[in-house]
């Protein structure tokens, strides 16, 4: 019984939050990695692109609600996703045409593109804050919980319970669907393969008749879809706050590089690696050990590797270790 309680405890405090957070990072990291693989720069404006997409989703959600349209027990925001995606695609293509294309044609160094993406970051930052403000916005509606901890306890008769928020389940399921479609696209369709080919060997792709303009457009479209979905899922799960999106960019970068920059599957795993180490290292295992160990061995301290204050610092530290020892990421595999 104690053993079961211990497992449930971990499930509730590590596995469920880890899967949710990992999904959010994974979606973000795949976007960053696609931009890096095809357009060849680290896009510092990506966090704010997520914020922009989410903002449009929030505004559209408000509009839908004002029309009396909701999505039953699911959040209305899911219905509003297409609006957010369309707006983000348009925005991305606009910035590509007005800003990034010039440097791509000039074959500028990656550092210059990073600097330029910081300029875009500032602009998006301003747009989002001017339109919707810097404060918290909660736009989650529909059912809050799939299962409450108390219900779980009653059902099983255990001391510990698993609480499952509907946003958590939605996040994981949406991520699975999105990533399945994406990987099918990249690996099985002609367009997806041509994107990978372009990313792998630009000159040869040109010699094979692959049109770079189209590849760039596909990439921005896919990236915008991913950014909007990731941002919306994060906003549903926590709340929408522009600054939090900037902050999230850093663990997303970490996940991208851990997975091997330019490698979408690696980015997917990288998201979960970062999420689980962050949560696993900041969780206090005292209660867990109390269940498992005999009384005389029970720990007196919290048994926590590092305080939750350093949550982000962990992902940064992992990243730095990876950068030093495995700069190409810890996963071997196909690069986009």
């Amino acid at each position: 019984m104690d053993f079961l309680n211990a497992i449930i405890l971990l499930g509730n405090y590590i596995i469920v939050p880890g899967l949710t957070y990992g999904s959010q990072l994974a979606l973000g990291a795949i976007g960053v990695t696609l931009i890096y693989g095809v357009l060849r720069f680290a896009n510092f404006a990506y966090g704010d692109l997520m914020a922009f997409g989410t903002m449009i989703v929030i505004l559209s959600t408000g509009y839908l609600q004002s029309l009396g349209i909701t999505f039953g027990f699911l959040p209305t925001a899911l219905l509003a996703l297409p609006m957010g995606i369309i707006a983000t695609v348009i925005l991305s293509l606009f910035f590509d045409k007005t800003v990034f294309k010039y440097y791509r044609d000039m074959k500028s160094e990656p550092v210059i593109l990073i600097v330029v993406s910081i300029g875009v970051m500032f602009i998006l930052n301003a747009i989002v804050r001017i339109v919707i403000g810097p404060g918290d916005v909660i736009f989650m509606d529909g059912a809050r919980f799939i299962m409450k901890a108390s219900e779980f306890k009653k059902m099983t008769g255990l001391n510990e319970g698993i609480a499952l928020k509907s946003t958590q389940l939605i996040t994981v399921i949406t991520t699975i669907i999105t990533c399945s479609i994406l990987f099918y696209f990249l690996n099985k369709t002609k367009t997806g393969k041509s994107m990978r080919a372009y990313s792998d060997n630009e000159d040869l792709a040109l010699l094979s008749g692959i049109d770079p303009t189209k590849i760039v457009i596909y990439t921005w479209v896919i990236v915008s879809i991913l950014a909007t979905i990731a941002g919306t899922l994060y906003g549903l799960d926590k709340s929408f706050k522009p600054f939090a999106y900037w902050n999230n960019l850093l663990p997303i970068f970490a996940a991208t590089i851990v997975g091997g920059i330019g490698n979408p599957l690696g980015a997917f795993y990288g998201g979960f690696v970062i999420a689980f180490t962050e949560i696993g290292l900041t969780y206090a295992y005292k209660k867990f050990l109390v269940y498992l160990l005999p009384e005389q061995l029970e720990p007196s301290s919290l048994v926590q590797y590092i305080s939750t204050d350093y949550k982000f610092a962990i992902s940064f530290a992992i990243l730095i270790v990876v950068l030093i020892y495995r700069p190409n990421g810890i996963f071997k595999g196909k690069v986009i």
Partner: peptide, 15 residues
Amino acid sequence: FTELTVKENLEMGAF
């Protein structure tokens, strides 16, 4: 294309 399979290389040739 080093990161593509041999077959995918051929498919890209016929893009």
